[in-house]
Nucleic acid binder design. Structure first.
Lengths: 200, 200
DNA sequence: TCCGTATGAATGAACG
DNA sequence: CGTTCATTCATACGGA
């Protein structure tokens, strides 16, 4: 193992093949009567070797939950060692490669940020809070968070902690970090979907 | 391609819960719950009922026409600003989100390319009997294109411009770009469904 | 009513 | 890293 190589390079694709374009891969099990590809044309590859074919990882709910909780606990750039451990943990629920774990975190981080930025760009102050029939504001949906082990829904974006939980309420992230709020009690940072918080 | 377009953002709304879906359906598992994530976090909180849910955008014909013309005019990766303007334009015909516009372009581009590739891959000609690529085996249909403002149908794939419109006929894309043809008059590039062309 | 295609939406995997 | 590609999932629709 080379300790000095940049991480991502470990996951380089085969140079000869542009972007992934594996015709397809057998999808072990997975049924659901969806039309699938079935292909079969390929033929070949029987036992003998390790099917190096790399079908896209299909995350199991349990895996996602674990990943999210790790992510929400502050890990956004796991080290190679962490990745290995995480992967080992996830493997229990289904096939998964280190690379997939790596990618997951990277995508998660990137998309979380993107989302955040995009939310910001669509600011039109909008005075009237209630719009009733008006359509939804595109990114205004709700997320599920767990507070004191009790799952619940809160809207995306700032929420008023004081109003929701009392004047002295403070939300702690599962890591113990307090969620900052302004003088009105509005959260200053986004709550993460699927994350666990503690109310104190 | 894409000289210097910074792509500031992406779209998305639901931070987690991968591809599951609202509404009902879903036969949660039972059969080797392989695919799908279903998310989890245990509880469901359906109470709020307000649940606007986000029904998938259903494009109106007018919207599609506008989008196609924009796409065919060369825009395949609209910037956020462009997207906003496009959406504003489309909104007149029905509800639509920026994200949908974004997705539309992305899908359009991806599928256009994919189609092209599949088209190409079938160069074995010869016994077309084995339509192997089970995936989607039907691109041997016709598309609708508008020539000199007159809509018409042409088969997918190369068409003989000379034969159809005369020895000196030349087809121009709505952008003004001429559609290349070989010495026989066959188009060297695919005509786009819904695109507008000019015959000169 | 059921099946198959078209396509909106989401996301794993990569590229520059 | 931000952006883009490719593939997959789920649903709206149209035909038989």
């Amino acid at each position: 193992m080379n300790p000095n190589i940049p991480w991502p390079s470990m996951f380089k694709a085969n140079p000869s093949i542009s972007r992934s374009q594996w015709g397809e891969a057998s999808n072990p099990s997975a049924i659901s009567g969806q039309r699938q590809s079935c292909e079969g044309i390929s033929s070949e590859n029987e036992e003998t070797s390790q099917q190096e074919s790399k079908p896209r990882w299909n995350p199991k709910p349990e895996q996602i939950r674990v990943l999210q909780s790790i992510f929400n606990s502050g890990v956004t750039n796991p080290t190679p060692e962490e990745i290995k451990r995480i992967r080992a943990q996830l493997q229990e629920f289904g096939e998964i490669r280190d690379a997939s774990v790596f990618y997951w975190f990277r995508n998660k981080k990137a998309r979380t940020k993107q989302r955040q930025r995009h939310l910001h760009s669509g600011e039109t102050s909008k005075s009237g809070s209630e719009n009733g029939t008006g359509e939804e504001s595109m990114y205004g949906r709700s997320i599920t968070i767990v507070i004191n082990n009790v799952p619940g829904q809160v809207p995306v974006g700032p929420i008023n902690v004081k109003a929701m939980f009392g004047e002295n309420a403070v939300l702690l992230h599962s890591t113990g970090q307090p969620i900052l709020q302004n003088e009105w009690g509005f959260t200053m940072e986004c709550l993460q979907d699927g994350a666990m918080y503690y109310l104190v």
